[in-house]
Amino acid sequence: MLMTPSDKAAKLYYGPSSFRVLRPGSHVLCAVTGEAIPLPELRYWSAERQEAYASCEIATRRLLGVE
C-alpha cells in the first residue's frame, strides 16, 4: 500500500505563537504519548523543546517535568 504525503507525519518548526511546515504531512506525533495529532487540531507545543502535545494537560505535565 502506497502512502501519500498526506498520510505521513509533518515536520514543523514551532514558534512561540505559530508553527511553520518544513515537510508536508497530515499530522505530528505527541512528544509524550506518541498519539497522532492532525495538523488542524494542533494547539499545544513547546517552541523551546520543538515538540507537540496532544492536550493542554499533557503539555503542562511535560513542562512541569511530571510525566
Rank of each mutant, 00 (worst) to 15 (best):
P40C: 12
W45F: 13
Q50K: 10
A36F: 09
V28G: 05
S18C: 04
E35V: 11
S55D: 09
Q50F: 15
A54H: 00
G15P: 01
T33K: 08
S17D: 13
R20T: 10
A59K: 06
L29V: 07
P40A: 11
P38Q: 05
A54V: 00
T60R: 11
S26F: 01
G65R: 10
G65W: 02
A59T: 02
E57G: 11
L22V: 03
E41G: 00
Q50M: 07
T33A: 14
A59M: 13
R43N: 06
A52E: 02
R61Y: 00
H27V: 10
I37G: 04
Y53C: 05
L42K: 12
E35D: 13
Y44L: 08
S18V: 03
L42N: 07
P40T: 11
E35T: 12
F19M: 03
V32F: 11
E41Q: 06
A59Q: 08
Y44P: 02
E51R: 09
T60D: 14
C30P: 03
R20P: 02
H27F: 15
L39P: 00
R61G: 03
G15W: 03
V21F: 05
Y44F: 15
W45Q: 01
H27C: 13
A52R: 07
R43V: 00
A31D: 06
L63Q: 15
S46K: 08
I58E: 04
G65F: 02
A31N: 10
I58C: 11
R62E: 11
C30W: 00
E51D: 06
R23H: 12
F19K: 12
C56A: 11
P40W: 04
A36S: 10
W45D: 00
L64I: 13
S46D: 06
V32M: 13
W45Y: 08
S18H: 07
S18F: 09
L29N: 10
R23T: 07
W45I: 13
R61Q: 13
A36D: 05
R43P: 00
C56H: 04
S46C: 15
R49S: 14
E51S: 07
Y44T: 05
T60S: 13
P38L: 07
E51F: 14
V21H: 08
I58F: 06
A31S: 15
G15M: 03
W45T: 01
L22S: 07
S26H: 09
L63M: 13
Y14W: 08
P40E: 08
A54L: 02
I58R: 13
L63N: 13
E57T: 15
R20H: 08
F19L: 04
G34D: 11
G65I: 11
E48D: 14
